[in-house]
Amino acid sequence: MTRHVSLQPITAEEQAKLGRMIANDPAFARRYVRDVRLETALRSMMKSESAQAAGLVGAQRFPARWAMAAAALLVLAAGVAVSLWLNAPHDILLSGELRVMRSGETLRLAPGERIRAGDEAFAGSVVSCRLRDGSQLKLDVGSRLVFDKRARGERVRLALKEGRLFARVTDADGRFIVVSEHGAIEVLGTVFGAETVGTGTMANVFRGRVALRSEQGELRIESGQSALAAAGRPPEPSDVDPNIALLWAREKTVFQERPLGEVADWIEANSSFAVTLDPVVRQERVSIAIPEIPMREVIDVLALITGARVESDGHRIALRAK
């Protein structure tokens, strides 16, 4: 039962055994149904988060008319809410799913809603916010961040508990602070990222510089560098590749259980590649979230998923059945 309801396929023999147990043991049948219901609820919620996190392609499961009407309403509602709040000196959620713990209650914020000082936020998807000073903030799915109360003279103070963030800071003057249990990042300008890793907090600087402070000392990190604040060792700078470090923050295109032919058509429309597929490979169903990485890498991933062989001749690429 556990394997059936936890994403792992079961054999025909196991299925037959499962059927016998359901038919002969009412208590077992109840547990099975309880698990199936939980599984369905879990998938439904997680898929809804994924759909919000990225533009969902090819997986619309309801009439287009309803989808368009719902989308128009959402856009209208979000637009009105955002325009009302955009110029106010508040931290505002712009997009994505953000839950906040406020006064012991968990609230789910809608786009355009205000985030308050002291809110502990949890990102259920990639989330975009506009901060009170006009800075832009992105949080990765699963990140936990406290919008801390500011000390005197500080513009923004964020406490990163888990996960990662990316910020484009306006008028950086050292009063934009990100703290974690491993140290503090003082932003001197202007585009940077921070993420918790197993043993510390990593600061990545993409433009300008930041000061990274930990118990082990302070280090100024320049554009194109990163450094780890961790207990027991002083931070040291190393190079950071923004194309890799910021993959998570870019928009993705998601295909869910779609024929590979459909994905190949999309690749052709969005790259200079001409993609040829063997008929047997064309019908293979795949699920893939495509970030803005070189399309050739996407094709390699698709080959890995489907077990196909890649043949390349300049800009023409073929996926062949092995």
Binding site: L42, R43, S48, S50, G142, G163
Partner: peptide, 18 residues
């Protein structure tokens, strides 16, 4: 909402993104 970020991420990737 009470899960750790990593555990939440695991569920999100397995169930939401297949």
């Amino acid at each position: 909402a009470r899960l750790s970020a990593v555990n939440r991420l695991i569920l999100h990737r397995l169930y939401g993104e297949n």
